[in-house]
C-alpha cells in the first residue's frame, strides 16, 4: 500500500518537474526572442548613426567653401564626429552622439548666416539628408527604447526574473540623447 502511495507521489513529483521544465524553456526562449528584438532595434539606430557619420565630412566641406572663417566650428564638428565613431557601448555612444548633435546644430546655425550657401543646391540636398537622418535616429531610438522597456520589465518581474538570473540575461540601457549639449540652445557667433 505504501508502495502505491510512493508511486503516486513519484508521478506527481515527476509531473511537477516536467511542468516547471517546460515553463523554464518557454520563458527562456521568450527572453531570447525579446533580446534579439532589442539587438535588431539597436542595429536600426546604428545604421542611421553611421549614415550621419558619413554625411558630416561632405557637409563640412560644402560649408567650408563658403564660410572660411568658421574653422573653430569645423574643428569641433570633426572632433565630435571622431569621438562618436570611436565610442562603444550604449551609454558612451549616446553621450558622444549627443555632443555631436550639439555641435552639428551649431554648424547649421553658422550656415544660416551665408545666403550664398543657403541657395546652394548641393548644400540644400545635404541639409535635407542630415535633418532626415536626425529624424530617423530619433524614430529608431523611440522604437529601441520601447523594446528595451519591454525586455527590462520582463527580466525584473517575478517569476521570469528567476529564468533571467540563471540564463544570465542582464538589463539593457536606454538610448537617451538628452544630455547638456543637446539641451543648450545653439549659440551663434558672428
Amino acid at each position: 500500500m505504501s508502495g502505491a502511495v510512493l508511486g503516486i507521489m513519484a508521478m506527481v513529483f515527476i509531473g511537477i518537474v516536467v511542468v516547471i521544465g517546460l515553463w523554464f524553456l518557454m520563458t527562456y526562449n521568450g527572453l531570447v526572442a525579446l533580446r534579439n528584438q532589442v539587438k535588431n532595434a539597436w542595429a536600426q539606430i546604428d545604421v542611421q548613426l553611421k549614415r550621419r557619420h558619413d554625411l558630416i565630412p561632405n557637409i563640412v566641406e560644402t560649408v567650408k567653401g563658403y564660410a572660411k572663417h568658421e574653422s573653430g566650428t569645423f574643428e569641433a564638428v570633426v572632433k565630435a564626429r571622431a569621438a562618436a565613431v570611436q565610442a562603444s557601448g550604449v551609454a558612451a555612444q549616446a553621450k558622444a552622439e549627443g555632443e555631436l548633435s550639439g555641435v552639428l546644430s551649431r554648424l547649421m546655425a553658422v550656415a544660416e548666416a551665408y545666403p550664398d550657401l543657403k541657395a546652394n543646391q548641393n548644400f540644400l540636398a545635404l541639409q535635407e539628408e542630415l535633418s532626415s537622418t536626425e529624424n530617423k535616429i530619433a524614430f529608431s531610438r523611440q522604437a529601441y527604447n520601447d523594446q528595451v522597456m519591454i525586455y527590462n520589465t520582463r527580466i525584473q518581474v517575478i517569476p521570469s526574473n528567476i529564468v533571467a538570473n540563471i540564463g544570465g540575461f542582464t538589463a539593457m540601457d536606454l538610448f537617451e540623447l538628452k544630455d547638456e549639449a543637446q539641451r543648450q540652445a545653439p549659440s551663434v557667433k558672428f
Partner: peptide, 16 residues
C-alpha cells in the same frame, strides 16, 4: 524626390 522618400523611410522606422 529625396524629401518625400526620406519621410516615408522615417515613418517606416517609427512604425517598425
Amino acid at each position: 524626390a529625396p524629401q518625400l522618400y526620406n519621410i516615408v523611410e522615417e515613418m517606416r522606422i517609427a512604425a517598425a
